[in-house]
Write a protein that binds this DNA or RNA. Structure first.
Lengths: 243, 243
DNA sequence: ACCTGAACACCGTTCAAGT
DNA sequence: ACCTGAACACCGTTCAAGT
């Protein structure tokens, strides 16, 4: 809403006008879309603006992707494929820690795209293979199958929540359209005021590491009592599908 | 994209046509918007559709809210105000556990709205007071100010990530436009296949509780070594603001 | 004070047509 | 095979006008 742009193509020069010399390809579209998203935000990545950046019409994109949703899936796939799985060598818990940091680093390389990644189910080939690799590492740390499955999930919650907070926090402005004043906080929220220095960007690394290490410590030690197993549900249907 | 609706007001009867009898109020608009979001999804909540549900023109809303963003902020505020802070009585760690479950329960009451909540900074009066209350509980569990601030953040990451996964997972369809086949998973992802029963909805409660209890256990025990304190940054500017 | 109509600058997507 | 033009059904928001 309220994009500061005037009429048709006011600032075409700004973003690589890219007179098409070579033919359009899916890869070129993905690359341009990633650039546009990080340069101007997810909302600015419309088919018309993307065509402008590519030097073609909006509709040309539809020859290579059947819908915008398919293109967005390709962007998410790109981001996921951008997370390196740590090679064997270090202890499993150390490899898992590095993987968590690698996932977070991906989010920081794609801060504008990440909110989309966070909300996407990873059920593409790239996605399920990433999940499989993470699960393998979690199972190397947590021997019991059930606890491993649950901690895989819990670790994912933490990673997505952390990366989302770090990317949406600084990439966006003051989210609330009518934000609260510093005076109000000073008056009503003494603890928040006292804690706020630790919420600044300089502390993000240490905070992320603390929560991650807390989870990893419990995963490795296994001191938490196993939760009650849910009773088998009423409907006796099949049970399959990745999620 | 591709909403299955035909032309103008094809199914006006479906959603409370609500011939306006009483005058429009901000509360009535918020209530209708919440209903529309949960009934049809965030994307369906346009000013025109909302006007239709309220029995007024789209533009009437702008007399009560200066922009759609302000209205969305009010919806998020409503959700946050909908999380009860557990009353004194039980031990602090138990109250904090209950607060975490209450936050998750709010997400489940607003599954379509929650992705917006997850991405919103809580810098409205309602938001900062909620943060203050949570922080007070965390500080009752974690005595050191710095660790308390960091664990407050880490717990928030976990809660948001968990609630987001649980709400976007079942509220949305198979996110990827071209999802992977069960055969592909069976072929390439044996661990995912084996773990998938634990990823089903019947196991969500137990999985959420395990990760939460792991974090709470570390918070209460304080066994994780404090992370290295970041050195003071170059720019010697002011340091304030809630985030 | 409260609400509306018409208009503007956008969207994603369809379809038939161009090369 | 690859790309385009015009059109359709939408958006949020502005502005002047109605009651």
């Amino acid at each position: 809403m309220a994009k500061a742009r005037t009429a048709t193509g006011g600032k075409r020069m700004a973003n690589a006008p890219t007179k098409r010399d070579r033919p359009l390809t899916p890869d070129a579209i993905v690359a341009a879309a990633l650039g546009l998203v990080e340069a101007e935000g997810l909302a600015a990545m419309s088919t018309r603006r993307l065509g402008q950046a590519l030097g073609c019409q909006a509709m040309s994109i539809y020859y290579h992707f059947p819908s915008k949703q398919h293109l967005l899936d390709a962007l998410v796939d790109h981001a996921i494929a951008d997370v390196p799985i740590p090679p064997p060598g270090p202890a499993p818990v150390e490899r898992l820690r590095r993987l968590a940091h690698a996932y977070r680093a991906m989010a920081h390389r794609h801060p504008q795209l990440f909110p989309l990644v966070a909300v996407h189910r990873l059920n593409t080939p790239t996605g399920v293979r990433f999940v499989e690799a993470v699960l393998a590492l979690v199972e190397a740390v947590v021997p019991e199958r059930e606890r491993a499955a649950r901690y895989f999930r819990a670790l994912g919650y933490y990673l997505v929540g952390a990366a989302l907070d770090e990317t949406t926090g600084y990439a966006k402005g003051p989210s609330a359209a009518a934000p609260v004043s510093d005076e109000y906080v000073a008056m009503h929220c003494p603890r928040l005021l006292a804690a706020s220095p630790y919420f600044k960007q300089a502390h993000w690394d240490a905070t992320f590491a603390l929560g991650l290490d807390a989870l990893l410590a419990e995963m490795a030690s296994g001191t938490i009592a196993p939760p009650p197993v849910p009773r088998p549900r009423v409907r006796p249907k099949t049970q399959r599908a990745p999620d």
